[in-house]
């Protein structure tokens, strides 16, 4: 059993997937198992993944969204730590090593995150480059970009399968609402690719999903406030 299970969900990102996979295989921390979950791709993503042979585990599901794909990968993995990488992004070689070091140093810590730098995918032409200009230079990654204990993942019930967009916001909100702890590695260890088919663009009809995630969090906190009002000692 490897210490860290890495899950890459992929939906029609054949152009970028190999780079993502290779960045996991190049990690300095070697106790890593990688599962690629093909979320019903209709392009060559599956062939790209299978091209890595025994270095990875390849699973395929009918299109169910990246939350369902990540959950399937977790269910078929065994590491005590979990880490997730989007198929169009890539890691620096010390990403897992740094994040696991934080978790190993503090048994009370539930997750470790790193800084993310956005980059414009090299194939974009001038007009596209202007449209996808980076909104941030460096930002702290949300939890689904980090490494977490499997127990923490299980405590909050994994990723939502109701949303196509804002799955990570929902996950991080539930993490916070459950009182789980994370710390930040102050190093850029994740590179997020900006391109013309990022999820926000290709799932543009699902932008209300962000409001769904927000509403769900609001409802959890309203219920918690109601419960506290009924029983101030709780």
């Amino acid at each position: 059993m490897k210490a860290v299970s890495v899950i890459i969900p992929v939906y029609n990102y054949e152009m970028y997937l190999a780079e993502a996979i290779q960045s996991v295989l190049d990690q300095s921390f070697t106790e890593v198992e990688l599962t690629v979950v093909d979320d019903g791709s209709s392009d060559g993503s599956g062939d790209v993944a299978k091209g890595f042979g025994d270095a990875i585990t390849y699973l395929r599901q009918d299109r169910g969204g990246n939350g369902a794909a990540r959950n399937l990968g977790v269910a078929n993995s065994s590491g005590s730590y979990l880490s997730f990488l989007d198929a169009d992004d890539r890691w620096h070689p010390t990403k897992i090593e740094r994040e696991v070091a934080l978790l190993e140093a503090d048994a009370e810590l539930d997750g470790a995150r790193s800084l993310v730098r956005e980059f414009i995918s090299p194939e974009l032409d001038g007009e596209e480059r202007h449209r996808v200009r980076a909104t941030h230079d460096v930002i702290p990654g949300l939890l689904h970009y980090g490494t977490m204990r499997r127990t923490a993942f299980e405590q909050i019930g994994g990723f939502t399968t109701d949303l196509q967009l804002a799955v990570g916001v929902d996950f991080s909100a539930r993490w916070a609402d459950a009182g789980l702890r994370s710390e930040l590695v102050e190093e850029v260890l994740i590179e997020r690719r900006l391109h013309s088919s990022n999820n926000w663009a290709r799932e543009s009809n699902r932008r209300g999903d962000l409001a769904m995630a927000v509403k769900a969090s609001l409802e959890r906190r309203r219920k918690a406030a109601e419960a506290k009002q009924k029983d101030p000692g709780s």
Binding site: E118, V132, T135, H136, I139, V169, N198, A201, L210
Partner: peptide
């Protein structure tokens, strides 16, 4: 009005591409 999820929403790097030219830096 709620600002408690602002960090999460701003850190969710999904809103940079749009045919209408969104977004602008905050």
């Amino acid at each position: 009005k709620h600002t408690d999820m602002a960090e999460l929403i701003l850190l969710d790097p999904v809103h940079e591409v749009d045919s209408m030219g969104w977004p602008h830096r905050p």
